[in-house]
């Protein structure tokens, strides 16, 4: 995705910044349909743990996924509960809600400021587009298409927490 972006000659990428735990993540704005307040979801029996359930979004049944559970991020949110949101993403014609700890802002990220994922993740880089730098902040840029696949592979999740760790270290160094 990053290569595609560079090839397209696009200078800026508009992204939405959200938080899971203490880290900041970013997704391209064009895959976010809307952001809604959390609502009670209907549990789906025998579904994976990270599937919160389904909600009624203006008559459409939309599955909701808990972002922290999905990526095994244990840490507590630095934000109050009231900041919780459901980001409704539209990916490959499927609408899916993602529960995040907070949605912070929309920014224009310079494509030249995006670096590829810092460590060798073998083939598991596809979840990430890279690390975006913005005013001394480090944003983990998510490829929403891969990110929202419901049947996750353990490796991908591992990669995800790896990246999160690396970012932490990088920030500590800064």
């Amino acid at each position: 995705m990053l290569e595609d972006l560079i090839r397209s000659g696009q200078k800026e990428l508009q992204v939405i910044i959200f938080k899971l735990g203490s880290e900041e993540y970013a997704v391209p704005i064009n895959c976010v349909q809307e952001i809604i307040m959390p609502q009670k979801a209907t549990r789906i029996p025998k579904s994976p743990k990270y599937v919160e359930g389904v909600i009624n979004l203006r008559g459409n049944i939309v599955p909701v996924i808990d972002g922290k559970k999905k990526f095994l991020l244990k840490e507590k949110s630095s934000n109050p509960l009231i900041d919780k949101r459901i980001m409704v993403l539209e990916v490959e014609n499927e609408t899916t809600g993602l529960i995040v700890d907070s949605v912070n802002e929309v920014i224009n990220l310079n494509v030249s400021e995006i670096e590829p994922p810092p460590i060798d993740l073998e083939e598991n880089t596809e979840i990430f587009c890279g690390i975006g730098k913005y005013n001394n902040r480090l944003l983990i840029l998510i490829n929403s298409e891969k990110f929202m696949t419901i049947h996750e592979e353990a490796k991908k999740i591992e990669a995800f927490s790896k990246v999160t760790d690396v970012i932490k270290k990088a920030r500590a160094a800064v």
């Binding site: 789906i44 579904s47 389904v54 049944i61």
Partner: peptide
């Protein structure tokens, strides 16, 4: 319709919305 990947077992055929806006499977 409900995302088939969510319920890998086939005992749920879909969902519906009730009068109070809640979803019932």
């Amino acid at each position: 319709p409900i995302n088939k990947k969510l319920c890998s077992e086939h005992y749920i055929s879909g969902a519906t919305t009730l009068g109070n806006g809640e979803v019932a499977l």
